Amino acid sequence: MSRKKILYVEDDNTLAFLTSDNLEQHYEVVHFANGNEAFEAFKKNAFDLCVLDIMLPGMDGFDLAAAIRELDVEIPIIFLSAKTLKEDRIKGLKLGADDYLVKPYSIEELILKIEVFLQRSQKHVAAKNSTHTIGAFVFDPENYALTKGKETIMLTERESALLKLFIEHKNTILKREVILKSLWGTDDYFMGRSMDVFISRLRKIFREDESIRIENIPRIGFKLVAPE
């Protein structure tokens, strides 16, 4: 697995060396002592997290964080500063920083915070990437939404669960009892009739895309046929 890339901005050479040396055991660290240079690098490279001092030559840490937030509203930002005033901490957090550590800080605490924010960021990306493309449609199971172009069709929770199950088994036969037990916990007759209604509604929606169809496999189940 590739190492996470951290933008570290600190103009104190001794502190920068010690912090970089420790962080580089875990991450790829790109260090700058100047805020303007750091921002130029941010615009040209992909980083996973930013660690910023506040008192910097060129663009200070507050301005740097604001500029970074203009380009990326989600990247985690941690301030490291000798500024201990509550007003400075509040200003930093209002600018969109995720945390504010006061110098002197422990490397262990910094690494712990970095790990927390990297994991949170990864989960957020995973959630964002949880949509599924099926033909001309984009399916968002978390929000029960099926979008085609500018049109969004809202599904019921059960319809969304059914479509998600079909997509997970795309182009393979799903037995009726497997669908019923997965979604209803039972394969009795009345639940089967409800399932047929939901499948009919999905078929009606997918009529707009000839590359998608839900095939009935007699006495066995169904198959969602769609482009890979």
Rank of each mutant, 00 (worst) to 15 (best):
D11E: 13
D12S: 10
L15E: 09
F17P: 00
L18W: 12
S20D: 04
E28T: 13
H31G: 08
A33V: 07
G35Y: 02
F39M: 04
A41Q: 07
K43W: 02
A46F: 08
A46R: 12
D48H: 10
I54H: 02
L56S: 08
A65I: 03
V73M: 08
P76E: 09
I77E: 08
T84A: 13
T84R: 14
K86D: 13
R89T: 04
G96K: 04
V102E: 12
V102Y: 03
K103R: 09
K103N: 05
P104M: 07
E109T: 10
E109C: 00
L110I: 07
I111S: 06
E115V: 03
E115F: 02
R120S: 06
R120L: 12
S121L: 10
S121K: 15
Q122S: 14
V125A: 15
T133V: 09
G135L: 00
A136T: 14
F139D: 10
D140I: 00
E142R: 15
E142H: 14
T147Q: 13
I153H: 12
M154T: 07
L155H: 06
E159Y: 03
S160L: 01
K164Q: 10
L165Y: 13
E168P: 02
V178E: 08
V178D: 08
G185D: 09
G185P: 06
G185S: 08
T186C: 00
D187E: 15
Y189I: 11
Y189L: 06
M191A: 05
G192S: 10
M195R: 14
R203I: 03
I205N: 07
F206A: 01
I212H: 03
R213H: 11
I214A: 07
E215I: 05
I217P: 04
P218I: 05
R219H: 13
F222N: 15
L224S: 11
P227I: 13
